[in-house]
């Protein structure tokens, strides 16, 4: 049972999250957009956490599934093919296609040692990008490096996510509407993750991570269970990709480079592999690194040298690389490690 104090705390957090976009909007709509992308990265991190954190499989091409979801959305809801399906039809399709891609990639490699998976996923990420870049001929499928634009925004009945609505004195801009939608999805993903973690399947994932041979001997079909982790992670990536396409209104291969995979991995690793709250914290923290750099390093350089010597984008990647290396060296369980003691959920159960 939750104590009253915990309930009070949760209520406070909920109110803060609901009020947040209006506070941010006061500082500029750009901040709402930045927050939306941060939430997208939280979603991606939670998806990757199933693969890397729970099951201990290093996936270095995770962004490929994000890309698959984004392109599925772009192709089915844009003037490119003249298709305009509603988002609640496309998102499940995107998740399914990404899931299939995950299974096709995972099936041959998951029975091998983990490092092969790492390098194969790394290559897979590249391949997906190469295909996106080149599948503009002989049939124009992806429109090549130019990407696909004028992607439909979400639309629920009369509610258009690209326009502003006013309710009394409150202005619900497009980004704010997306924020609430993302928040709902995030809530769902957190619940799903927690439930999976506390289930027969979730335990099997952790068992494989801890000792694969013992897991096999204990009756776990490790190949299938690993494939399941891979497929689940890919599906989450696909859903996040679809939302990304809609929010951005534009997709191109440039958005799905290796660096993005590394960024999501850094979020999972820094926060604490396997710990949902740690991963969320890591993702939020690293999502705001570029903004932080923009407001500190850039002006500092301008003030000191009168020009930009070090590109903040480079610094950003250096921060991610260092986050990976230093976390592994000094705090391998992450800043907020997973704790596997009696969980508060237990009391609620059956």
């Amino acid at each position: 049972m939750k104590t009253n104090r915990e309930r009070f705390g949760l209520a406070l957090i909920a109110i803060a999250l609901i009020a947040l976009p209006f506070v941010l909007a006061a500082a500029g709509t750009a901040w709402v957009r930045i927050t939306n992308f941060a939430v997208l990265f939280v979603l991606l991190s939670l998806g990757l956490n199933i693969v890397v954190g729970f099951a201990g499989l290093l996936d270095l091409g995770y962004v490929a599934f994000f890309a698959v979801g984004a392109y599925v959305y772009a192709l089915l809801a844009s003037p490119h093919f003249g298709l305009h399906l509603p988002f609640w039809v496309i998102l499940p399709i995107g998740a399914t296609v990404a899931c299939l891609a995950g299974v096709i990639l995972g099936a041959p490699t998951l029975r091998l040692r983990g490092d092969y998976l790492a390098i194969v996923t790394l290559g897979f990420g590249e391949i997906v990008r190469i295909f996106m870049n080149n599948l503009s001929s002989p049939v124009n499928l992806t429109n090549g490096p130019k990407g696909i634009n004028r992607i439909d925004p979400f639309q629920i009945g009369p509610l258009d996510f690209s326009a502003s609505d006013t309710l009394g004195t409150l202005v619900f801009s497009g980004p704010i509407k997306y924020y609430y939608f993302l928040l709902l999805v995030l809530l769902a993903v957190i619940v799903i993750n927690r439930r999976l973690q506390d289930s027969r399947i979730g335990r099997a994932w952790v068992a494989i991570r801890e000792d694969e041979i013992a897991a096999k001997a204990s009756g776990i079909n490790t190949r299938n269970i690993k494939l399941l982790a891979f497929a689940m992670g890919a599906s989450f990536g696909g859903i996040a990709g679809g939302m990304f396409a809609a929010i951005q209104g534009f997709v191109s291969p440039e958005s799905f480079i290796l660096n993005e995979s590394i960024m999501v991995l850094a979020m999972v690793v820094l926060g604490g592999m396997g710990n949902i709250w740690g991963v969320i914290a890591g993702a939020v923290l690293l999502s705001f690194v570029p903004e932080l750099l923009r407001y500190t390093v850039e002006p500092a350089q301008m003030a000191l040298f009168g020009k930009l010597l070090v590109d903040p984008e480079v610094l950003r990647m250096l921060v991610f690389g260092l986050a990976l290396v230093l976390t592994m060296r000094f705090r391998p369980a992450g800043l907020w490690p997973e704790t596997r003691h009696r969980r508060e959920m237990d009391a609620d159960r059956a």
Binding site: V206, E210, D211, I213, A215, A217, R340, H341
Partner: peptide, 8 residues
Amino acid sequence: IRLFANMT
């Protein structure tokens, strides 16, 4: 002994 060391 092969246990899942970080599980209860």
